[in-house]
Design a protein around this nucleic acid. Structure first.
Lengths: 252, 252
DNA sequence: TAGTGGTCTAGACCACAGC
DNA sequence: CTGTGGTCTAGACCACTAA
């Protein structure tokens, strides 16, 4: 083969200066933008593999790769013999979100009253959940969540004190803990494993949440991991059952 | 190009008689078998793209396709510059399983006592969850789940009576409803959307589950869809909180 | 029949990891 | 350096759908 791929590749590279991104990712982001901007509505058809290959000057396989990834993300649906279409509403199932973010997603603003914020070293269960020695120094942060003046939930969070110096001085009452971790500590949150069960309100929690004793509560224990699989935070939450329900999607 | 791909393809086809499966799927299933049989342990390395291409007489892209799919399923991990490895334990998060299957996964056998099994036409909420008209004929199946002699949960399931004739005559007390649907009615179960909250046991349920009134219960409403997105079944379950906890994984 | 997505080839160059 | 996965080419044939 005379004029090798190399010449073609370097030709394209020299033509596009600020672009080290793979071609299929560029194509994806263009389509994503058209969807986000509303230019492409759910149900509308996305350019076919062959169209994309032609207009972006790439091979079929590359255009195909771009669409395959978008389909995997649930952004588009592909139908053999018909075409590729923008997928419907795009509801976020099984998304890891902070309480603040979840409220925001429902157009509510969540406040938080800090009940406790100190370093402790005698919480061995929390330490174990974080894969730390039993008497490790842990940041313990207890917050009462409320919205529209009503108390909604009690959340207690634990983090390795050695990993997040100064965290207790951050504006934890106002801002999302997730946002602080991601912005100020450059943590890449990856996923969380959660255990959910039901429990009855003990007198202490009942008082805080302004509900009768023994009322049912949703209890969620959550270990949050970084993208690299390191345990970042353990959170134990009690949620008023009349104000919360968990929505999840399971796959076969 | 003289000897077209066609000749190559038909050559391979004639050599392998019982095989209409795409090459990349054959490669996948071979690797899967080696993992399932324990021949490949977690951490072991899987043959490289180039190895697979050579031994299976396919191109690199095809071998690559096979590995990419296995990675997406979480069966293997790929590390650039190093190789492809069998992924660790393989815990099933967010997997849609019947109660029977969940118990089996914990090496327990679940029994079920059928409390009610008839066609009804006045359950408009259930009909709505199944996207059917309010007074549709629905199969209603109420079962008390138990294990080791103890009652564990109360589950009520609804299905479109028109879609599953004869279902009420199946061995619903012994066998998994999922198994019956998949085997006898050739339904391809796809996913389920679930709403989880906590509630207090009313006198009726408390009696059935042999727990004090007002004890907390986990309540799960579940709409199960086929792979094509059609609502197949609506299930409402109450689970003793001292015997159940839900495990889920969320991603950022 | 024309157009779509699904599979596949026989290579190529790149970035990266380990020796 | 070699070997790995990641990206990419310039086509091909197939199965499917709709006009």
């Amino acid at each position: 083969m005379p004029h090798s791929k190399k010449s073609l590749a370097s030709q394209r590279l020299s033509a596009r200066i600020p672009n080290t991104l793979p071609a299929y990712q560029r194509i994806q982001s263009l389509i994503r933008k058209r969807i986000d901007s509303g230019q492409l509505q759910p149900g509308n058809c996305v350019p076919s593999e062959r169209d994309l290959a032609r207009t972006h000057r790439v091979s079929l396989m590359t255009a195909r790769h771009a669409l395959a990834f978008l389909e995997r993300e649930g952004l588009v649906e592909r139908r053999r013999g018909i075409g590729t279409f923008v997928a419907p509403p795009k509801i976020h199932f099984n998304k890891l979100m902070s309480y603040t973010e979840q409220m925001a997603a429902r157009s509510l603003t969540a406040g938080a009253k800090v009940l406790f914020a100190k370093v402790v070293n005698n919480e061995n269960e929390a330490a174990a959940r974080l894969s730390l020695p039993p008497t490790s120094n842990l940041m313990k942060l207890e917050r009462l969540r409320h919205a529209t003046g009503e108390p909604f939930a009690l959340e207690t969070s634990y983090l390795d004190a050695a990993e997040f110096p100064g965290l207790l001085d951050a504006p934890i009452a106002r801002e999302s803990l997730f946002a602080i971790l991601e912005r100020d500590y450059e943590v890449e949150l990856g996923y969380a494993d959660e255990e959910v069960d039901a429990t009855a309100a003990d007198p202490f929690i009942a008082d805080l949440l302004a509900i009768p004793r023994r009322d049912p509560l949703l209890r969620i224990r959550q270990v949050i991991y970084s993208t690299k699989g390191k345990a970042i935070m353990y959170a134990l939450g009690f949620y008023r059952s009349d104000r919360h329900n968990l929505v999840i999607r399971r796959f076969r």
